[in-house]
């Protein structure tokens, strides 16, 4: 009903009336956008906020109200959840996770950088076919290779050890990372490398002293993603790790669901909070690298 008002009051200048209307329309659509964004943001974050709140609730309160602030905050879930129903505490399971993540991230970074350098900077026989296999691996569902891989690791006696979980990555097995680094390298001018070669550096020295520093942001992205994915990996440990003393966090969490869920909900929620804490912490410290990594890996593809 007030829509016509500006036209009446500013009738002296038609242009202003038009501009006012445009301004108002822009304001309304901006408001709509903010409302949508805020609503979606709430949907995105509320489950996590609720999770953190609920981990401090008593068991009777968890399914009693949808708010996230506990009425009688308790550390019960954390203390008892940490102890677990096994002879080990979660400290052990976090340590096991670390023992998988550390070599996996380190050797992924080294092998993926080397291989990407080879693909991006050299011509060699069979390069086209090899590059095609890289794309094929990117699209190959892991289920197809999983069974023979299991048999292979069984035959060399690696079952119930961490080796099957990280050794394939040490051979640049995660095509996604190699691909990401190749894309990044292609966008980097070769001037500095060529200058170094003219000055007598060999290709390996050029890689270490010129290319690696240039690639640093991309290598950091690779490490972050690998950290995150390994932290979240469940199926790998489920297949290869059988003794509880070697369980990583993801398996331990599944174990605590199976053993305590019927009544001790806050223990499971508390341990879930701890399980996502490393990933969240790393993300907030280095979020710039995540966003850049994923945008460059995808868009330039």
């Amino acid at each position: 009903m007030s829509v016509t008002t500006p036209e009446v009051t500013t009738a002296t200048s038609g242009l202003t009336a038009h501009q006012l209307r445009e301004q108002r329309r822009a304001k309304i659509s901006a408001t709509i956008r903010y409302v949508i964004l805020a609503a979606v943001g709430l949907l995105m974050l509320y489950p996590l906020i609720w999770l953190i709140g609920a981990s401090f609730k008593t068991n009777s309160e968890i399914f009693a109200n949808p708010g996230f602030i506990p009425s009688e905050p308790t550390l019960d879930g954390y203390i008892k959840g940490w102890q677990t129903s096994t002879p080990y505490t979660f400290a052990r399971f976090f340590w096991n996770t670390f023992l998988i993540i550390f070599p996996k991230v380190l050797f992924t970074a080294i092998s993926a950088t080397m291989v990407a350098y080879g693909f991006a900077r050299f011509e060699f026989p069979g390069k086209k076919i090899l590059f095609a296999t890289l794309i094929a691996i990117l699209l190959l569902p892991n289920v197809v290779t999983r069974i023979p891989q299991y048999l292979l690791f069984r035959d060399i006696g690696w079952l119930d050890s961490f080796l099957p979980l990280w050794v394939p990555s040490a051979f640049a097995g995660d095509a996604f990372f190699v691909f990401m680094l190749i894309q990044f390298l292609r966008a980097v001018p070769r001037d500095m490398e060529e200058a170094a070669r003219v000055d007598g550096a060999n290709s390996f020295q050029t890689l270490i002293f010129i290319v690696v520093p240039l690639l640093k942001p991309a290598i950091i992205s690779v490490c972050l993603f690998q950290f995150m994915w390994t932290m979240n990996d469940f199926l790998g440990p489920l297949i290869y790790i059988s003794s509880v003393e070697k369980y990583p966090v993801s398996l331990a969490l599944k174990l605590s669901i199976d053993t305590t869920e019927a009544f001790e909900w806050n223990r499971i929620l508390a341990m879930s909070v701890l399980a996502i804490t490393p990933a969240l912490a790393v993300f907030f410290i280095a979020q710039k690298h995540f966003i850049e990594g994923i945008s460059s890996g995808g868009v330039k593809g």
């Binding site: 080879g118 050299f122 069974i147 023979p148 891989q149 048999l151 051979f171 097995g173 290709s203």
Partner: peptide
């Protein structure tokens, strides 16, 4: 550079490709 130099850098990938992907793929 030798035309095989690039091949040296991608060797880890070739080994991994054969052992952990190509062979399991065909064997399954």
């Amino acid at each position: 550079d030798s035309r095989f130099l690039g091949l040296a850098y991608v060797t880890p990938y070739i080994i991994g490709l054969l052992i952990f992907t190509a062979f399991p793929f065909l064997y399954s």
